[in-house]
Design a protein around this nucleic acid. Structure first.
Lengths: 251, 251
DNA sequence: TGCATGTTGTGCGTTATACGAACAAATGTC
DNA sequence: GACATTTGTTCGTATAACGCACAACATGCA
């Protein structure tokens, strides 16, 4: 790609949109400028463009995103076969397990939820398609990282801020890499309250017909309901069934 | 706003992202050019920019969006208080009703789902935050259109393609406007299989503490389970409770 | 093979944008 | 109320993007 095949005005604008995610509130021009590192004049032009197009509201002082920006994320969900294909299998899985079931893919150091079937809410945070969690401490993240060559997995870990969300959270790189090996061998990952106290989950990879891991699915359950060690016996058969069914429809 | 306060490169790029939604598949440069009406060279630069930033994959022939674009839509969901505030109430509502509950806002002629609590899937299509439905034939859409001045509601209807999705679908402007009046008086809207055969729903407006309608919530149920005329008696008290609770937290 | 059709990539003159700084207007502080 | 600081806006200029035209390549068909 040549130097001139890059529209920096577009790239800057996308950066401005993402700046809203971090703050959870409306932004002034100066705030957006600080968050993005872009010049105030440039940010102002981007924000005014967003307002002009209806992606943002502007009250003369603050900018706030409008629901129209959901179109952008939805463009992926409806254009990509994966979420659409997975959803019905996830519904079945969730129904049979009586627990929430989700699907996600890896995006750099995080997993991104692409589909979800929730029976009831077990986590304090609200997960919807588009939600992100750090890969190292999520069951689907473990599965997705385990599918990578070890050097790549290490590279991702080195870019990750390994926080101890609970006292159970594994934060040591060598411990995690060893865990990836185990996950690769046994074909599934179990998380015992590493992300949030009271929450356990079990995940398996979603493979296409060439055996490549392209996503992960999991079942999450309250620790009060079932201890982590009991999860494989209870849910692994269901997950494996779904995994097998998906392998046949994914090319 | 001055002429120069608009970044057309940014606006063009956003248009390119949205082009993916319509086709439900990957796009070549020429296809994206046709869909957006932009010059091929321009579209090519935008697509290469998306690829460079990781928002798209490029195999040398076709471009496909990556999960990273979900960040953009999610920037709205996490930055806006409304979805976050509504979600727990929706969960409760859904649990008590034993049916799916959703929340949406109006975006031009369509409603956009901003939160959802699903007990089981009752519709053939998959609804997630970001999903859109035409306002005129959805229960939440009726409620949101009824909250507008009649001239505005008519203006929106005039911009809408009034399709008869089922034999029940109301497509006559005068019939719809009369329906809006009734909805405004009775404070709720009921849809009897106007969107999809077998699906009924009932919606009420979500108002802030100044009485302004800022969103709508609904309960959807299979027609086989409960006829449309029985919905108010069964679900309206629950919806009104949730409406009241939300009024207190929304300023 | 030869022709027609369609697609992608590139060079170039014109036009529009981003940059940085300087100015103006709030905002906060003592 | 005066000062200091932050924020929003304007402006001239270097630079980058735009759209057109053309070349290169692939594909389909007779």
């Amino acid at each position: 790609m040549r130097e001139t095949d890059f529209v920096s005005g577009f790239a800057r604008g996308l950066k401005v949109i993402e700046a809203f995610e971090e703050t959870r509130q409306r932004l002034s021009i100066a705030e957006a400028s600080k968050l993005t590192g872009l010049d105030r004049a440039t940010v102002r032009r981007s924000l005014l463009t967003l307002a002009e197009l209806g992606y943002a509201d502007y009250d003369g002082k603050f900018f706030a995103l409008t629901p129209k920006v959901l179109r952008l994320g939805h463009a992926y969900l409806s254009a990509t076969p994966l979420p659409v294909l997975i959803q019905p299998h996830l519904d079945q899985l969730s129904e049979k397990a009586g627990q929430s079931a989700s699907a996600s893919v890896l995006d750099n150091t995080e997993i991104v939820y692409i589909a979800r079937a929730s029976q009831r809410r077990v986590m304090s945070i609200n997960l919807t398609p588009g939600s992100r969690l750090p890969a190292y401490c999520a069951s689907m993240g473990r599965v997705l990282l385990a599918a990578l060559p070890e050097t790549e997995a290490r590279a991702i870990l080195s870019r990750t801020e390994l926080r101890a969300n609970t006292e159970n959270t594994k934060t040591d790189v060598e411990v995690l890499v060893a865990e990836f090996r185990r996950v690769r061998e046994q074909g599934y990952a179990v998380i015992d309250q590493e992300l949030e106290i009271g929450l356990c989950s079990i995940a398996v990879p979603v493979e296409n017909d060439r055996g490549q891991t392209i996503a992960a699915i999991n079942i999450g359950a309250p620790a009060a309901h079932l201890s982590a060690v009991d999860m494989p016996a209870r849910y692994l058969p269901l997950l494996k069934n779904t995994q097998q069914a998906l392998r046949l429809v994914l090319r």
